[in-house]
């Protein structure tokens, strides 16, 4: 793309040479640079057009918030107040000032660790069970209504049952993550397996693929877009669930931090924690979506 542009610039400079009696070579060099500059400028414009609108909106919202909460008698803190009061939390996510006085980064990592275990188990179990169910019409008919009911149960409703079963808050929180995120993974995987096109089955039949080969070479790649839809819903749900679960089970996580801050009337801290939760949740979703687009390259574009 770059070459023809550069060429035309050179020829333009040659054409213009009679009118400008200066040495043509010197004229052509800055022209090349200009071509480079326009490319850099185009990239900058592209970045700016993606970054500036959200920044403007954030500034606008913060201003409105500031105006609303500056009045005397306002129940919620204004952004400036949050900045001054929760300054240490904002500037350093990874400080350690005492056993219960640590940066939000550490707390998020503890929560993420719980999510990783619960969600990881849900992904393994969900894909395995979904694959089995998807292959049997009767298993699908029998289990699908049950799953559809179970998946609507709030994560927190499971907590007393898991506390009763595990008698410890750590495995209970992990179980809540698991039970929240496993349903969409099972259901989507099963649907993906059910929807393998007959064409692919015919190809497998002509090639006489055995069950193992069929599973790895046809079934999993063909169902991958569905499986990743389930995984993406699952990671969102587990991040929703961990905050709620930690509020009740305690410990070091970000959820408990919010509950603790509420009990000690540190409202500005809660706002910072909310920002952390939102950004981490967004990043988790992006990571799974990115993974999906790498793994299912080509598959969904058919």
């Amino acid at each position: 793309m770059n070459m023809p542009v550069a060429k035309s610039n050179v020829s333009a400079s040659i054409l213009s040479a009679p009118t400008a009696p200066a040495v043509a070579k010197i004229v052509s060099l800055p022209l090349r640079q200009t071509a480079m500059n326009t490319r850099i400028r185009a990239t900058l414009v592209k970045i700016a057009s993606a970054v500036i609108p959200p920044l403007v909106m954030i500034a606008l919202l913060l201003t409105v918030w500031q105006v609303l909460c500056m009045r005397p008698g306002a129940t919620l803190p204004a952004p400036t107040k949050i900045w001054t009061e929760a300054y240490d939390l904002i500037v350093d996510p990874f400080f350690v000032a005492g056993p219960q006085d640590i940066g939000l980064g550490w707390r998020v990592l503890v929560s993420l660790q719980r999510v990783a275990i619960g969600y990881g188990l849900a992904a393994l179990f969900g894909i395995a069970l979904g694959t089995l169910i998807g292959q049997s019409v009767w298993a699908m008919r029998g289990l699908d209504p049950i799953f559809q009911v179970l998946r609507t149960i709030s994560p927190l409703a499971w907590l007393p049952i898991s506390l009763a079963a595990f008698r410890d808050s750590q495995p209970s929180a992990i179980f809540v993550i698991f039970i929240t995120s496993v349903w969409p993974i099972i259901i989507n995987t099963a649907v993906g397996i059910r929807n393998i096109p007959q064409d692919y089955r015919n190809v497998a039949a002509v090639l006489q693929l055995n069950h193992f080969e069929f599973f790895w070479k046809i079934m999993i790649p063909s169902a991958a877009p569905y499986i990743f839809t389930g995984l993406r819903i699952g990671i969102g749900l587990s991040w929703l669930a961990i905050v709620a679960a930690e509020m009740l089970t305690g410990g070091v996580g970000i959820g408990f931090f919010i509950w603790d801050a509420w009990n000690s009337s540190r409202l500005p801290d809660i706002f910072i924690a909310l920002a952390y939760i939102g950004i981490v949740g967004f990043l988790l979703d992006r990571v799974v979506a990115g993974l999906a687009s790498i793994v299912t390259r080509g598959t969904s574009a058919n």
Partner: peptide, 19 residues
């Protein structure tokens, strides 16, 4: 009476594996 590579099929809709 069962499919096999000795009777390879070129399908109408190509049936290539997209991945």
């Amino acid at each position: 009476n069962e499919p096999g590579p000795d009777r390879a099929v070129v399908f109408q809709n190509h049936s290539l594996l997209p991945w």
